[in-house]
């Protein structure tokens, strides 16, 4: 049974490329365009991993992770934050909120796959 990953990013192209890479590696992918959308896409279903951008309209990544961790079904779900070099502060904030893994933007699809496969197998 393939594992499910939720990708939250406001850039459609990022969601698309990450989606291509993850599906190619054998994961199921759900896409959301911001934090609010991300929460609504959960639907109580089993999510094995969440990849989230920090900077998004409507609800940013930090708030999203904080809200997510309040939900019993997702409090143990690993989260990969998409940070940038200049956002060391955001990375700390994200870790404090519960997103312990990160990938630094800009990244190549292979880097994203490596980070994901450290946390879960397809």
């Amino acid at each position: 049974m393939a594992k499910t990953i939720l990708v939250v990013d406001d850039a459609a192209s990022v969601r698309q490329v990450v989606g291509i890479a993850l599906k190619g590696a054998g994961y199921d992918v759900i896409e959301a365009c911001d934090g609010k959308d991300g929460l609504s896409k959960l639907n109580g279903q089993k999510i094995h991993l969440i990849i989230s951008d920090v900077n998004m309209p409507n609800m940013d990544g930090i708030t999203f992770v904080k809200e997510l961790k309040q939900l019993p079904a997702y409090k143990f779900t690993p989260v990969i934050m998409l940070t940038t070099e200049s956002q060391e502060g955001k990375k700390q904030e994200g870790q404090a909120a519960g997103a312990k893994a990160w990938v630094v933007k800009p990244f190549q699809p292979a880097q994203m796959l490596a980070a994901v496969s450290k946390l879960i197998l397809p």
Partner: peptide
């Protein structure tokens, strides 16, 4: 920010 991040994905 978004353009930069996406552009990186495509190299």
């Amino acid at each position: 920010h978004t353009i930069k991040g996406s552009a990186g994905l495509f190299g």
